[in-house]
Design a protein around this nucleic acid. Structure first.
Length: 239
DNA sequence: AACTAACCCAACCGCCTCGTC
DNA sequence: CGACGAGGCGGTTGGGTTAGT
């Protein structure tokens, strides 16, 4: 089964977007909305496929995108959410206002993963972080599984699976100990944070992974970010 | 100054899910 | 119920930039 690429048609441009193309896309969407992405490039007069237009818009041109470096708070939130959600970048992005899944994915792969690996070398208690994507490890329970109540349906990538199956038995033992220890830590941190954010922890949104984003305001999203940060800080104190 | 390695990030690719017919 | 199309997602890549030698 080989599906033809969306840009197979001759004459469709690929590669980096020019300022002119950006301008055309922004102008068109601001006037008409994106509507049907496949039809958009033709209507807007762009020699791009709809997929490319959608990507350019959602990852770069959207007016609500926050550019610039990630704050330490944002980075910690990503780490925390990644621990809970695995490589579900769009779900993580949904909880970080102004950030795109692509951006978060890049930050994770270029900064955070490496940082956690380093931390792992100096702080064995953080092993669960460096063990790539434990939340998606089919053989191990997530540290935060008590919070998630096993509702997640992890999507395993081949790299995630292979890395998680490379543990030695000794590592696996340590791994299990850390999981038990950290599950307890997260439970304690959750209890503390819950006192400050009862509206969030009783919100159906918190029952991951149901994405009730359509009803989520910017303010509430910011509050969620604060919540995750507070939860992380509580957990850190307990480590 | 020239070269190389490492890093960064925008963009592409292929697959999956969902809605429609 | 199955086929198909569109949108969305995550993994990967390639080119530009920066740092190091």
């Amino acid at each position: 089964m080989v599906r033809a690429p969306c840009c197979e048609k001759m004459g469709l441009k690929k590669g980096p977007w020019t300022v002119e193309e950006d301008h055309i896309l922004i102008t068109y969407i601001s006037r008409h909305g994106h509507g049907n992405w496949r039809a958009l490039p033709k209507q807007a007069g762009l020699l791009r496929c709809g997929k490319s237009c959608r990507l350019r818009w959602t990852n770069y041109l959207r007016p609500d995108i926050k550019r610039g470096n990630f704050s330490s708070q944002e980075e910690e939130t990503i780490i925390m959410l990644h621990e809970m959600l695995g490589n579900r970048w769009s779900a993580i992005a949904a909880r970080l206002p102004g950030r795109t899944d692509n951006e978060i994915k890049n930050v994770w792969h270029t900064h955070l993963k490496k940082r956690l690996c380093k931390q792992n070398q100096t702080n064995p208690a953080a092993e669960h972080y460096a063990m790539e994507d434990i939340a998606t490890n089919p053989t191990g329970e997530s540290n935060s599984s008590k919070l998630e109540d096993q509702k997640l349906s992890p999507q395993h990538s081949s790299s995630e699976f292979s890395s998680s199956t490379e543990f030695s038995d000794a590592n696996a033992d340590n791994h299990d100990m850390n999981i038990n220890q950290n599950t307890n830590i997260w439970s304690q941190a959750f209890s503390k944070t819950n006192e400050d954010y009862p509206a969030i922890t009783t919100d159906p949104y918190f029952q991951l992974p149901s994405p009730m984003l359509s009803t989520t305001t910017y303010e509430s999203t910011v509050q969620y970010t604060d919540f995750w940060y507070k939860l992380l800080m509580e957990a850190e104190e307990l480590l």
